[in-house]
Amino acid sequence: MQSSTILPLVAVSIMIAFLPASTVQAGAMDPGEMLSASCAGCHGTDGHSPGAIPDISGKSADFIRISLQDFRSGERESTVMGRQAKGYSDEEIRLIAEYFGQQK
């Protein structure tokens, strides 16, 4: 094997080692993205809201997670977010928060 072909292979294996499993599955939607697609209908694509609904793009994963948990428990008052947040488990909220935390 020539070193010129080994190098890229090594690079690929190193890159794959650093990736969460779901990211390697390019071409398929990962679970966090699937769950978060539901938010875009109100908050805009990846949370970029052009109007009266709060813009949640670029927010940290912690902010998203804590907000959803507080809306769900009723600790934070809302018109509609309580009714939305009750549709997601702790694990799903974690995936959603992680997804938004990675977007710009």
């Binding site: 209908g41 109100c42 908050h43 805009g44 694509t45 809201s49 052009p50 109007g51 609904i53």
Partner: peptide
């Protein structure tokens, strides 16, 4: 009144999510 505002906000968000 807040839901009336959010209704317009929803419209602007979903149409930008789809056609923008």
């Amino acid at each position: 009144k807040a839901e009336a505002r959010y209704s317009v906000g929803w419209y602007q968000s979903i149409t930008s999510d789809i056609w923008a």
